[in-house]
Amino acid sequence: MADAAVKQEEALVVEGLTRRFGALVAVDGVSLRVAPGERRAVLGANGAGKTTLFNMIAGDLPPSEGHISLFGRDITRLSPQKRVLEGVRRTYQKSLVFGGLSVRDNLYVAIRGATGPRLAIWRRVETQPDRDGTGPLAERVGLADRLDAPASELSHGEQRQLELGMALAHTPRLLLLDEPAAGLSTRERESLMAMLADLPRDLTLILIEHDLDIALKAVDFVTVMHNGRLLAEGTPDEIAANQDIQDIYMGKHGQ
C-alpha cells in the first residue's frame, strides 16, 4: 500500500502523519490512501488516535509531522476554513448544533460557510436567494418538517441528522463523520444507514465508528488503528475474518 507516488485520482492521501502532545504520541506515522467515492471506516479502541487523525485532516489540529493532500493538492498547511472551500466537511463525536438558531438557520449558516460571502451584513437572510437551499438539504436528512424548530428542541437523533445536513451543505468532496451513530436508537441507526447509503457516489466518506456492524456494512474498506498506529487495512470481510483484530477491538471496546 505504501506506494510513494501520489496518483492524481486519489481523493485523500495521508503520509507519515504524526501528532504529539508532549511525550504522548497520539497519532504515529499514519499513512492512508482513499480513492474518490470510496467509503472508508476507521476503527479502533478509545485512544487509538482516530479523532486526532480527523482533527488533522480537517485542519483543527496542525500535525507534528507528515503531509495531507486532497485530490492531489497539498493541504497540510491550509486553515480549516480554506479546507471547507476545498470540500472537506466533518462532524463531531458530540452533537454540535447552534441551539439558539432554527434548523433552517443552522443549515443556512452551513451553506454560507461553504459558499460565502460569510460576513454579508446588508441583506437579511430572509431575502438571500441561496436560502432556498435549506429546504432540499433538510429533506435529504429527514428534517423537512422541522425547519422552523429551534435546534435546541430537537431530539438527539434529529440533532445528529442536522449535523449531517450541515456537513452536506453545498458540495462536499470529502466527508469525515466522527461516530455518527453514537447514542442513536436501533431505528434511528437504520435510517442513518439509509441516509449514508443515499449519498452521491462521487462523495468520499470516512467514518469513525465503534459499532462494528454498522461500520462493516456501510463501507468498502476498513482501516484499523491501535495506539496511534495503523494496525491493519482490508475489506470488511477480511477485517471481520481477522481474529487478532476482533480480539483487540472487541476486547477493549467490550468493557
Binding site: 480537517a58 483543527d60 486553515s79 480549516p80 476554513q81 471547507v84 472551500l85 466537511r89 466533518r90 463531531y92 454540535l96 448544533v97 447552534f98 441551539g99 439558539g100 438558531l101 438557520d105 443552522n106 443556512y108 449558516v109 452551513a110 454560507r112 460557510g113 461553504a114 460565502g116 460571502p117 460569510r118 460576513l119 454579508a120 451584513i121 446588508w122 441583506r123 437579511r124 437572510v125 430572509e126 438571500q128 450541515m166 451543505a169
Partner: peptide, 25 residues
C-alpha cells in the same frame, strides 16, 4: 442579527468549534 453575519455570530455563541468546521474564521 438576521443577516448571514449575524447568524454566524449566533453560531459562534452556541458552538464556535462547529462554526469553524463550517468554514468560518
Amino acid at each position: 442579527v438576521r443577516t448571514p453575519f449575524g447568524l454566524a455570530l449566533q453560531g459562534l455563541r452556541d458552538e464556535p468549534q462547529r462554526l469553524q468546521a463550517l468554514g468560518y474564521n
